[in-house]
């Protein structure tokens, strides 16, 4: 299918022309092997570079405090978990972690519940109204965050919902709604309309049909949209930094306020980074298949 595999597929050619092919192809095949090796090396180097910042943070968090940020850097050391234990016991890190999770989960669930019917309608009701909504969604997606978040700060303080997880989740649902409906609309567009009609003939209402026919078919699409929305909520710094303060602080905000700390606590910031990131890396490993498949089946056709 691509440069790397075609070298192999060449050997599976019909036998009748084999001799000729081998004679003609050998030098080219060797060239391809070189290309494959170079490609593999490039990929390996990319992986190392992409992983390096996180790797260094893991190392900093598992060294002794003295070695953590020593210059010249220490590469060989005996790992210790002190920074993690101290982080866990002297700060409310678990609360920040729970806040982060709660915000991400609420955001995901509500965004999907609200976004699914809308995306379905947009995929089935072409015309200027739908186009208008989609354009609006695109514009909202591109807005400078501060244009909505600073007023939200002011409004939430006036309404007394400042520094609550649900206010933050509400803001994130709205901010990510454009992406959610855009993604889901493209998934719905893949499902043939005849299916709707067949179900409607069987006496289903639109909602019943949506629930009983469409949603089961949308499994991978919903999963993909869900993963992306979850990641958005889990990662969000700017909105969380402005809409939260003490009781609903999330981990990214916590880490950002630790950058100017002195040693023992600075090292705990590294530990916090590792603890925050390990679960999402787990998600990345589990979910990669769905992300690619999901993006493939619709999202990118927009």
């Amino acid at each position: 299918m691509s440069t790397l595999t075609t070298a192999d597929s060449g050997t599976a050619r019909p036998l009748d022309a084999a001799a000729e092919v081998v004679a003609r192809r050998l030098p080219r095949g060797r060239r391809r092997t070189t290309a494959a090796v170079l490609g593999g090396l490039f990929l390996a180097a990319t992986c190392v570079i992409m992983f390096a910042p996180f790797l260094w943070t893991i190392m900093a968090s598992t060294k002794t405090t003295r070695e953590a940020f020593a210059n010249p850097p220490v590469f060989l050391y005996e790992p210790t978990a002190t920074a993690f234990v101290d982080l866990w016991q002297t700060t409310d890190f678990y609360l920040y972690l729970i806040n982060t999770l709660v915000v991400a989960v609420i955001t995901t669930v509500v965004a999907l519940l609200v976004g699914l019917p809308c995306a379905y309608a947009l995929s089935r009701f072409p015309g200027y109204v739908s186009a208008g909504l989609l354009i609006l969604a695109l514009v909202f997606r591109a807005l400078p965050r501060f244009a909505v978040v600073l007023p939200m700060y002011d409004i939430s303080r006036a309404l007394g919902v400042y520094d609550t997880t649900y206010a933050l989740a509400a803001a994130l649902i709205a901010i990510n709604q454009p992406f959610t409906i855009w993604l889901l609309r493209n998934f719905f567009a893949e499902i043939p309309r005849e299916l709707d009609e067949a179900a409607m003939v069987d006496g289903c209402t639109r909602l019943q049909m949506l629930r009983k026919v469409m949603i089961p078919l949308m499994g991978p699409g919903i999963l993909t949209a869900g993963i992306f929305t979850f990641l958005f909520g889990f990662q969000e710094y700017l909105t969380a930094a402005i809409l939260t303060d003490t009781t609903s602080k999330t981990v990214p905000v916590f880490i950002a306020t630790q950058l100017g700390q002195t040693l023992p606590m600075l090292q705990q910031a590294a530990a916090a980074t590792v603890l925050l990131t390990i679960p999402v890396i787990g998600i990345a490993f589990v979910a990669q298949k769905y992300l690619v498949a999901g993006l493939n089946s619709g999202a990118v056709k927009g």
Partner: peptide
């Protein structure tokens, strides 16, 4: 999976690791 790591890390946190 390895390539996705920098995507799932919050930007601000990734930038901190990067700056170190």
């Amino acid at each position: 999976g390895i390539l996705l790591v920098s995507y799932v890390i919050p930007h601000v946190v990734g930038a901190v690791s990067f700056s170190w």
